[in-house]
């Protein structure tokens, strides 16, 4: 390439813009690299620190870890499904609510993030316990005779996690819905679609990228929960992150913890890729 062409290329405003954007993104990318990728690589290297794959063998062949990993996935799927069911209507409402409604909705949605996880979890204990607010109220109203088992079991864990994860589902779906031209819904209705069919045929498919992003976020983050399931599960629920934390904190077996974390990471990536393949095809096609 002659230097004249090179000059011209450098002067190309589109290229200049692209270059500027890369420069602007660089600090964030570097930060991510330093505080995320580097420790991740350290972690991976720790899992094979003794020069063998023994740690992985233990993680993969011991049915304890395989079962807990499977159960964690089950819980993550459940949380994702519940979040999706709860979040979609909220996102749809927010997308058409005025400014005040939006600010109000977001406030309540983000409330859990302003309290520490321990405070939040103890608050749930107060609410959900056998003699908690909910059970007492229902008994006072004569709706139930015996307290509902809401705490110290899977139900409690699901409630606690869903509460925290809801915004991660609402916000991407909200963003996706906001990007849909309102004329599309009008067009569908004008062409003879009742509201629910317009939703199924037009709004829903167009919001799929948001749904997918939300599901991926919720699923992946849920897999890493350990305080909430430990406290609200009352021992009935075991998640892989709890076992990893045990290895790190109690036994200082960092090599094995690293192997477990690597297995979790790999499993997460596989499921993420599968999900992306499943919904990405048509979802990302929209606008």
């Amino acid at each position: 390439m002659s230097s004249a062409t090179a000059d011209r290329r450098r002067a190309d405003p589109a290229r200049a813009r692209e270059r500027m954007l890369v420069m602007l993104a660089l600090p964030a990318l570097l930060l991510l690299g330093v505080i995320f990728i580097w420790p991740l690589l350290r972690l991976l290297s720790m899992s094979v620190a003794d020069g063998t794959l023994d740690q992985f063998e233990k993680a993969a062949l011991d049915d304890l870890y395989v079962m807990v990993l499977y159960e964690s996935m089950e819980i993550a799927v459940l949380v994702t499904v519940i979040c999706l069911a709860l979040a979609y209507p909220v996102a749809a409402w927010l997308a058409q609510a005025g400014r005040t409604g939006f600010i109000l909705g977001m406030f309540f949605l983000l409330l859990p993030f302003w309290t520490s996880i321990l405070v939040r979890t103890y608050a749930w204990m107060v609410l959900l316990g056998r003699n908690g607010v909910i059970n007492r109220t229902l008994r006072d109203w004569g709706w139930i005779e015996f307290p509902l088992p809401l705490l110290h079991n899977l139900t409690g864990v699901l409630i606690g996690i869903v509460h925290v994860m809801l915004p991660y589902m609402v916000i991407p779906i909200y963003a996706a819905l906001l990007r849909i031209d309102p004329d599309l819904r009008r067009a569908a209705e004008g062409l003879g679609a009742p509201a629910w069919r317009a939703f199924l045929r037009v709004t829903l498919p167009l919001s799929l990228p948001g749904v997918f992003a939300g599901c991926a976020l919720v699923f992946v983050i849920t897999l890493g929960f350990f305080i909430t399931p430990a406290l609200l599960g009352g021992g009935q629920v075991m998640m892989i992150a709890m076992l990893i934390e045990q290895q790190v904190r109690e036994f200082l077996d960092w090599n094995f913890a690293a192997a477990l974390a690597t297995v979790l990471l790999a499993a997460t990536l596989v499921i993420y890729a599968a999900l992306a393949k499943l919904t990405g095809g048509q979802g990302h096609g929209a606008r």
Partner: peptide
């Protein structure tokens, strides 16, 4: 005005 074709 903007046709409102269903993009998907």
């Amino acid at each position: 005005q903007n046709y409102a074709l269903f993009p998907h």
